[in-house]
Design a protein around this nucleic acid. Structure first.
Lengths: 360, 360
DNA sequence: TATAATCCTGTAAGCGCTTACCGGTAAGCG
DNA sequence: CGCTTACCGGTAAGCGCTTACAGGATTATA
């Protein structure tokens, strides 16, 4: 008899018990290595399990011992109409998610992902759905208004990855201010650029606001001419960055010596638009990013940017959440350090370039 | 009274029922829009739910009605020792996962992700864990030997994303053969290259084997000189591609006129290694990829490659799985078409380049 | 060999939710 | 006005698993 016939629906622990000739309690004990079953019992159970290909039901398990071993992660994605063009926007979020995943593995947790469209109204419905299936959840930036976060946090262990923490919820973020200050200082002090612009991200993003503020404070304090405002309004996407540059150029504006972009995507778009007009980077205009997305080092010229420890960000978010889930307490605002990554788009020359210019 | 005190542990449907002054059955019915509760009942329940911030437990729900509304996805990641350098390898898998996610949303499913290290022995343990928490699972390439897949598939609805289908499981894949034939034909017929090499991927990958075979067949049939073999053995990574080129060059080998890489990562590494030696692409050696990863168009020169509809691949995998879960049957081998993407690394000139060369 | 101490193992309760089933109330009809 | 028909809403069973509790088997002690 090849396959032991499996009559009604999926296997249960009762099927295994019957086959092994023991009780369901014994099966459970062997499966969870609790107690000290007799060697013969253990063997019979294990044999039955493998012969049957039994996989215990996670839902029943979770219901019974109050732990799902699942962490929910919710984030925004481009609207699903365009399959192709949103590729770029994956990167930042995905790297964070990978960090969450790695940390979760260490505790035997799995990660339940759920994305929400940018214009999706019922984000909170989706979030509730995930919350019900997980022991705790991690919310990427701009998922929910502050009030909603606070409310939800009173029901479910909750970590946000926002620019600014919200009352009641735990939060993990990067030190935007320090990174921006270092970047601006490099451009103005080290390179001597006298006019600088901030090509902003979405206005509703706390990260963007923090960066914009730090940018302006630092640039002004060093006496540089600062370009900001509605004509410099991007939206975190490459298309947005390119559009700003095109708009400025079409209006006949003179560009500043350096353009500080809200993130790497925006810088990518800006550099693309500049190249199309024949404007040299960094020779005519310096461009910088923020995030240090993987592609940043492959751009031409390689992008000077501020690295956020993205994977660590995710890992830390999980660790904080896990601590809350298992012990009931967790840090409410963790700030991770960032690092200025100097490549060539700011005007610094790589060793190779320098050598070529110097002859030999 | 600001917060209605919430005594023991998380809220249950009983708490809501008590507060609304109805039975748990009514609460459940309102929550699931079943039956036709009286308007007043409905309102009282909804008010109680929002006041309490109640979120129904997914595990209990799943246990009760036999549907978790979760699809598991398992894939390999680089070993966790290196946080930074594995960034590149995210892309391919992540785009597919995004496709799964989008399709899953449409059915109200969420996606349970679980990655497994390349050298992780107990991959099957991890997979079982995920299987228990999901209604069905999707396995990326090379997760499990064929026998294991067949076994598991007899217990859980299962879709593989492998180069070749396995008995018992459902499979979704791209048309490697057609893509490779078109690519080779372009290089040999359109460009007239007489010597071509295949810089391979991992030998244990069915995708790689299919591509290698198609490459050789097509190249030979057009009378080109073919370079293959152990000195052309890569591993799907950029580092692997660079290492092959370095090895060949250090050994004093003469390179063929065109190098067909097993995937884009490999091409990226190969181009990097060639650039370091001052060998021009495509002028001295043409290089092509496979996959059309997002960065491919940003390389210098932009990479000629074969586009796999990766997001669609993921979406299709989910759809097939969903059909199996809900109706009990699903296609067992779906093949998606690929598309040759001609950019510049093959020797074709972009319009911009052509214009520049032509004077004007 | 009788009795106590130790181990295992089985029985049954309960996790939070859905839903079949049934009783009660309101509306419809002769 | 009494009886049928509808319609709601409540009670209770059961989803598959873990585990407290207790009983039977086994071994140690006298």
């Amino acid at each position: 008899m090849p396959e032991p016939k499996r009559p009604k629906g999926p296997l249960t622990i009762y099927d295994v018990a019957r086959r092994a000739g023991v009780s369901i309690a014994s099966v459970s004990r062997v499966l969870n290595r609790q107690g000290t079953p007799r060697a013969s019992t253990r063997e019979r159970v294990i044999r039955a399990v493998t012969e049957l290909g039994f996989v215990p039901d996670g839902a029943a398990r979770a219901l019974s011992n109050g732990l799902k071993e699942v962490v929910g992660v919710v984030f925004r994605r481009g609207d699903e109409t365009h399959f192709e063009d949103e590729d770029e926007s994956l990167l930042f979020i995905d790297v964070i998610n990978r960090g969450i995943d790695v940390a979760a593995q260490r505790r035997g947790f799995d990660v339940l992902m759920s994305s929400v469209g940018f214009n999706d109204e019922n984000a909170s419905t989706r979030i509730s759905g995930v919350a019900g299936k997980a022991d705790g959840i991690i919310l990427h930036d701009r998922m929910l208004p502050a009030a909603g976060v606070t409310r939800l946090a009173s029901t479910v262990p909750l970590v946000t990855l926002a620019g600014t923490p919200v009352r009641g919820a735990m939060n993990v973020r990067c030190d935007n201010e320090a990174g921006m200050r270092a970047l601006v200082r490099h451009l103005i002090v080290d390179h001597g650029y006298q006019s600088v612009a901030y090509l902003s991200g979405r206005t509703d993003s706390p990260d963007n606001r923090a960066r914009a503020r730090a940018f302006e404070l630092e640039a002004v304090s060093h006496g540089a001419v600062v370009h900001v405002g509605s004509s410099w309004q991007g939206n975190y996407s490459a298309a947005g960055g390119a559009k700003v540059i095109d708009g400025l150029l079409n209006a006949g504006e003179k560009l500043p010596r350096a353009i500080v972009c809200a993130n790497d995507q925006t810088a990518l778009g800006a550099m693309y638009a500049l190249a199309r007009r024949g404007i040299g980077v960094p020779h005519d205009v310096a461009v910088t990013g923020f995030d240090d997305v993987p592609v940043a080092r492959h751009l031409h010229p390689p992008l000077t940017t501020v690295r956020q420890p993205m994977q660590e960000l995710g890992a830390t978010a999980f660790d904080v959440l896990y601590s809350k889930i298992s012990t009931g307490k967790g840090d409410s605002d963790v700030v991770l350090p960032v690092q200025l990554i100097i490549r060539e788009s700011c005007g610094c020359a790589s060793r190779a370039v320098r050598a070529a210019r110097g002859g030999i």
